[in-house]
């Protein structure tokens, strides 16, 4: 387990935020950690599950940063499914 900085974008938000995640977090947790800084604060919440997109691909919920081989400060987008 290691802290891992990523650049997070919440779909519909206006800014890229710095988010520390854990490299073993499943994408469901990564999504929550990024969404925490935008949804309900500047972006209206929706009653739908969140997904993470990386390099144009929507990631499986159980995939992890370590398993995918993401680099520090890669850009992860959080969007509603």
């Amino acid at each position: 387990m290691a802290l891992f900085p990523v650049q997070g974008i919440v779909e519909g938000d206006f800014v890229v935020v710095l988010v520390p995640v854990d490299d073993t977090d499943p994408m469901t947790v990564v999504a929550e950690k990024i969404a925490y800084h935008g949804i309900g604060k500047r972006v209206a919440p929706q009653d739908r599950p969140l997904k993470v997109r990386w390099n144009g691909t929507v990631l499986a919920d159980d995939s992890t940063i370590a398993g995918l081989g993401c680099a520090p400060m890669d850009v992860l987008e959080v969007l509603y499914a």
Binding site: Q7, V10, V15, V16, V17, L18, H37
Partner: peptide, 16 residues
């Protein structure tokens, strides 16, 4: 948390 800033203009990234 912090916004990520541009390594050129040093201003937060507002591309979204």
């Amino acid at each position: 948390t912090f916004p990520v800033v541009c390594n050129s203009c040093q201003i937060p990234l507002c591309t979204p």
